[in-house]
Nucleic acid binder design. Structure first.
Lengths: 249, 249
DNA sequence: ATATAATTTGCGAATTTTTGCAGGGTTTTT
DNA sequence: AAAAACCCTGCAAAAATTCGCAAATTATAT
């Protein structure tokens, strides 16, 4: 059994029972108590559990807990999100698409900012509810289980009536010629409308997506106002985009 | 065997077993462990798997994880939810309110049941997305951060247009004289409408809520068709409700 | 088809990670 | 206060990993 596998087992057990005992785990997992203790100490050090004499306890009392480790390239996404947050001002109306970059963004919004946020992503809506001064609206509709977003004509109808200051567009493909492109068919419709409803379109792009194209076209490069990446704004990879007149942060 | 072929094999195995070990793969695929490690590193670099010491794990873990142990009285809620599930049949349209009882219910729905579920609760919508054959619709609107449900006129407008077979009503107060009552002001409006839209109104009541009243009235006892509790159906506490003509499961 | 370039693979040696154990200290229980 | 259970440290063995390099394979160009 792999170490991480064992630690996941421990975390699951704590989620369910609220506590674990070292001696029991040692037997269940067929390793020495020393190993269990080392596991518990590591998990505790990462803030995932609370180590106590004889075992460990759950730390969180939230009904749903977001799982950091599943996010690919999280460090870069955080770096990117921090830049995006500098655009926010009190009183603004924001539209956010789905995706883990926007999810990180929504975790990092300063507590004192007062915003109104529309989103069609379940995880993002969920995350935003933890913020004390954001009014969160989720746009209803049929849920796409894979992306955890709502899709369909109703989503489009509602989005098209919104007037937003900024739209944060999680981007799955961006290219000089093809513009912004998207993996999901249904989602592509929704994204086009959210762009149309926003004064300021901000494309959030992790650098691995630069110069890639996906199946469904969303919009031309000149329809977006800003690109934010995890790279330094004067990284050579971004030069061609700047030349095309897009502001790059 | 081509490299790509080998990597697909690895991905398939991870999809199936959720983990792989380098040494096992080396034997299965008849290549050196070095090659396997290089494969795993490449796949991991592309975000397809998570490389760990000794092998790799699936990245397709849940973004949000639900903390079972935070639910009060969970055992009873599960007992109750199991009874509720016996009412479900293929092809039905269901409306579910919020609350942890309905959340447990949504976790327990058998995988093969085909349903259409409308809900205005974020956690329940989230949970239902894990079910393979349920079409999930979330009703959009402003989110009440405490209850994690949407509220407002739009929710009511949409709910009133739905025609559902069953409505599962999480119940915060039930009483012979006062009928069903609710803690939340905004939520009380929504619940009244969901009752009106359903052929069959099922009140889910944990026994500690029996004979209690909350601030906002929802409906009279005779407007609900079934009461489901964690108690035995012929528990004396339930006799008065049966006498009043409500079916008790 | 042949030569050339590029990629992929396996190997050995050095390094790192993981694990169990022994010893001695600390906390909890009796 | 003694006994038991638990915890930490350092250590050593086993397993896994990394790295450079050369051989083998595959791709590309002529």
């Amino acid at each position: 059994m792999l170490k991480e596998e064992r630690q996941n087992y421990i975390l699951d057990k704590i989620r369910e029972k609220n506590k674990v005992k070292s001696n029991e785990l040692a037997i269940e997992l067929n390793v020495s108590e020393d190993t269990i203790r080392r596991d518990l100490n590591q998990l505790s050090h990462n803030g995932l559990i609370l180590k106590v004499h004889g075992g460990a306890l759950s730390t969180h009392q939230k009904l749903y807990q977001y799982n950091e480790s599943t996010i690919f390239n999280r460090e870069n996404k955080i770096k990117l999100a921090k830049k995006a947050i500098s655009l926010l001002k009190d009183g603004q109306v924001i539209i956010m698409s789905g995706g883990t970059t926007n999810l990180e963004l929504s975790r990092l919004i300063p507590q004192n900012l007062k915003l109104t946020v529309y989103t069609y992503s379940l995880p993002i809506a969920m995350q935003l509810t933890e913020h004390p001064s954001i009014e969160v609206f989720i746009i209803g509709g049929k849920i796409n289980k894979k992306a955890l977003v709502t899709v369909g004509v109703n989503v489009i109808k509602i989005l098209s009536k919104i007037k937003a200051d900024i739209c944060f567009l999680g981007t799955s493909g961006i290219d000089l010629n093809e513009g912004i492109t998207e993996v999901g068919y249904e989602v592509s419709f929704v994204k086009r409308v959210m762009i149309a409803s926003s004064d300021n379109v901000v494309s959030l792009v992790t650098s691995d997506k630069l110069n890639t194209t996906q199946r469904y076209p969303i919009c031309d490069l000149n329809e977006i106002h800003k690109i934010i990446t995890d790279l330094d704004p004067d990284d050579p990879k971004l030069h061609p985009y700047i030349k095309r007149g897009v502001e790059v942060l």
